[in-house]
Write a protein that binds this DNA or RNA. Sequence first.
DNA 1: ATGAAAGCGCTAACAT
DNA 2: ATGTTAGCGCTTTCAT
Lengths: 356, 356
Amino acid sequence: MAVTIRDVARAAGVHISTVSRAFSAPHLVHAETRAKVLSTAEELGYRPNRAARALITGRTHNIGLIVADIANPFFPPLIKAAESQARMRDHHVFVAETDEDPLVEAELVQALSKQVDGIVLCSPRLNNGAIEQLAREVPLVLVNRRVPGLPSVTMDVAQGAGLAIDHLVADGHRDIALLTGPRGSWTSREQRRAATQAAARSGVRLTVTGPNQPTEEGGIAAAEHVVGSGATAVLTYNDLMAIGLIEGLDRLGTRVPADVSVIGVDDTILGRVTRPRLTTVATPTAAAGRAAVDMLLQHGDDRRTTAQVSLQTELIVRDSTSAPPPRTPPHGHAAAPPAVDGTDGAAAEPRGGAAT
Amino acid sequence: MAVTIRDVARAAGVHISTVSRAFSAPHLVHAETRAKVLSTAEELGYRPNRAARALITGRTHNIGLIVADIANPFFPPLIKAAESQARMRDHHVFVAETDEDPLVEAELVQALSKQVDGIVLCSPRLNNGAIEQLAREVPLVLVNRRVPGLPSVTMDVAQGAGLAIDHLVADGHRDIALLTGPRGSWTSREQRRAATQAAARSGVRLTVTGPNQPTEEGGIAAAEHVVGSGATAVLTYNDLMAIGLIEGLDRLGTRVPADVSVIGVDDTILGRVTRPRLTTVATPTAAAGRAAVDMLLQHGDDRRTTAQVSLQTELIVRDSTSAPPPRTPPHGHAAAPPAVDGTDGAAAEPRGGAAT
DNA sequence: ATGAAAGCGCTAACAT
DNA sequence: ATGTTAGCGCTTTCAT
């Protein structure tokens, strides 16, 4: 077995409680004794067993981080920042993945609950009621989702949508398409609302199409729709979809940005390496990870600060946007009625969350 | 406080040891009693505290996964697969990041050691001695590194290098460059050895250049060297470097694959979205994650099976390779002597590991 | 088949 | 300033 507090006590010739104090309440033990204890502990390679300690203190010094899909390029920077921040505050982090399954999500929260001081729940798929229920068992901080009464960190995608539309309008676009995300996504709803508003304010046409898979495939599949709509610019739900769209447009012989401009959202690493390099609304994912961890750990000190933080986004202009092509007569085969998704904005049910 | 075994015992009208048995040794308790216990536990929302259980059983049902950089596209698929496999075997996983710092690495292993049943150490930066030392404190499985006497999972990059060189030779290339990875990388050493051998076997020239940063920047920086070398094809240490190289070559007016063919290694998501799409040696990262977890958890049952698993790679031919351009007189300004890195292969010190 | 008691490694009153 | 005692939630002898 590993070396325990008792081994150290014996070797140092003191009682175990003195050893305990030397570590967790150094001021309560004589400087000399403490030095002696610390040095023998060092020699023996003793490290306090945090799990045993947690049994009595109630604080595990662990946190949980639950995401939909670790390999989705949106998450790694968030995970990285959260882990880093947690470790800076002397906590370890469990990372788990739900695969978008709400049942797995709930199960994970419960399974982890006894072993952590709190959980950062990213882009939850559970409905509000279930989340509130879980929050009663273990401190929760939500990312990419807002639930009344619970602390959360969200990206201001609404502001980002405004930035994107305004930029396109400034470039001369008058006919813009929006590719929404998955049905029931909080993020997508926000984005749609703000984009609609920004378009109206500028007096340009906005064609809303969706729901779409928040993936490359989703973007590829939407290409035909976009061409049919006659839009000269497109704002997508996320970078993945934007990249797929560019690929899809390319297959149809439509050039980006010469014929159609495309703006993604998230500023994932992908947008930096594709050609054309992707113009995108950067969501501060790393900052979100740090903020969520901070909120979770602060929560221990002062309670009743159920903050709902919203992080500003930023438009990164790269090569997938430009002025629209010189006016030509509208496509002959176009005139497809603007496909408007009736369900995405409706939110009949309070359930739903952002996929990325 | 949460509901404990005692609450269940009281509610079910049995002794706590009966409740304990109902969960961890069901056959020892009468079917009726068990049913009663289980149902009241369900009602009360009882979940055994694993940390408390671990105190006595010695098995935490947690594992650690330590990587260099969570956001490096090489790792997320590995982390994802490891987490999934661990959960399938009813284990939770701590994910931590070293930032390539050997001291952090050692510290992390020790800090985690009491809370886990074992640790998967990816691309370790520590020297063999230190790793062996740590392996005495907690079961370790190495990924991307081989240390005598310790279980490990490695990718057969040597085989992959052979695949790549052979493919280039088959396409007609006679003058190939290899861009090596960071100094002291086990992976890079293997790759170099195998590439040299394959080139010799085919009687083609191989120019070795390095060490290089295993990043886009590293690739960009190497572009000039490559052009100067007169090589018509390049094998890089990893995808990131390949993508950077393509960018760098583009800036110099050299086209890929028309003028120079490029092959990456890893098959990260990036290579699938860049243009030209990247030809690459796919390393089975997901399989490696799964295998490492399996080895770690098997280790509990039967010991003394210090397996060293090597996973086969596969060449994915996409658009960054083609036949070399029709013979033209060598570049006038070329004739730069093939830059050969003397240190990379030397391995004066047993330290080192693969960055990605 | 179940209960009683001891103890995993540690901290937290409570003594002294 | 240090030792004593009790106990965190649980499993595991040992009885019965």
